[in-house]
């Protein structure tokens, strides 16, 4: 990672009618990475992404995207970035082929016809190319949107909650595609609030109320939070889960099948609790390394939608 970063922004700030929506936000996305951008609804993810790709002008801060200044070189950024909006925003009254063709023309893609045909075949939609985009199911719309924002072979993909409201199978397929692209060297910044997506990422940043709370490699995040986790097995986990939840020393309890992951940031309290429970002998408590799953749950827990103003 000695290359220049794909995205590097410092102190990005944006207010809408007096309300600060993104607050001194920093982010550095290394080239070739899959970078997960987490945060509850309304925390400012979309606004931040729009500022990075030149769709919104920041009130404060500066930065570069693919080496271009986000304040002055929006045109070059637009030419080299693929941006997939949160809402499906292709033309529902155009056919699949017409949509791809139109976007390709906007980017003045060379060998356009061949490129569009190839995209259709990659999509597996070549025989339905004449179908109106509005008649596609959610998962297919998502894939079409991805194909559209990839049509000019951008070096950087900005995906804003690309799989919101899509079934798990379609989501997995979608991520297979993302990883394929990443392997080809495309940098991907993806906002999400699904855990199964978060754990696919090499890097994570977490934002709440417009402020970045934490960022780093996926591996380091649990340590950075200072999360300690016990793996608990044994009978009657449901009852145990309920009692543990009520315990102030426990930050969170997550159930994974026949296993409970009991985590908290207060190491001493957690240790005492484990010892005390071990002594009863009914359950087996094993200290494990906290992983991204726990970190994700920890971060998302208690993070209500951020729409009605931030904390004081």
């Amino acid at each position: 990672m000695t290359q220049a970063p794909a995205i590097s922004v410092v102190d990005l700030t944006k207010s809408f009618s007096g309300r600060v929506v993104v607050d001194h936000f920093d982010m550095e996305v290394p080239k070739g990475a899959i970078y997960g951008f987490l945060g509850p609804n309304g925390s400012g993810k979309t606004t931040t992404i729009r500022m990075m790709c030149g769709l919104l002008t920041p009130d404060g801060g500066h930065g570069t995207c693919l080496g271009y200044d986000i304040l002055t070189e929006q045109d070059q950024i637009k030419e080299n970035v693929g941006y997939m909006t949160q809402r499906f925003s292709l033309y529902e009254d155009l056919t699949i082929r017409e949509n791809l063709d139109f976007i390709a023309r906007m980017f003045q893609v060379k060998d356009r016809r061949a490129r569009v045909q190839a995209a259709l075949e990659d999509l597996g939609l070549a025989n339905r190319a004449g179908q109106l985009a509005g008649t596609l199911s959610g998962g297919w719309k998502q894939r079409l949107a991805l194909a559209a924002c990839m049509i000019h072979d951008p070096a950087l993909l900005l995906l804003d909650e690309p799989t919101a409201g899509v079934d798990p199978k379609a989501r997995r397929d979608f991520w297979d595609e993302i990883r394929r692209l990443s392997a080809k060297g495309v940098t991907v910044l993806v906002s999400t609030h699904y855990m199964d997506e978060a754990i696919q990422c090499d890097f994570i940043a977490y934002i709440a109320y417009g402020k970045k709370l934490i960022s780093g490699t996926a591996r380091d995040i649990p340590k950075m939070i200072g999360l300690h986790t016990y793996r608990v097995t044994g009978p009657n986990l449901t009852a145990l889960e309920a009692t543990l939840r009520a315990d102030p020393g426990v930050g969170q309890v997550a159930r994974f099948g026949a296993v409970l992951h009991v985590s908290g940031t207060d190491e001493a309290a957690l240790k005492a609790l484990a010892a005390q429970n071990q002594a009863k002998g009914t359950h087996k408590w094993v200290l494990k390394e906290a992983e991204l799953e726990e970190a994700f749950i920890y971060l998302m827990a208690g993070a209500a939608d951020n729409y009605d103003g931030g904390p004081a």
């Binding site: 909006t85 292709l90 906007m106």
Partner: peptide, 12 residues
Amino acid sequence: KGTMETLIATPV
């Protein structure tokens, strides 16, 4: 319909 966002994200 939101298509303006896609449109202005292109170099048009």
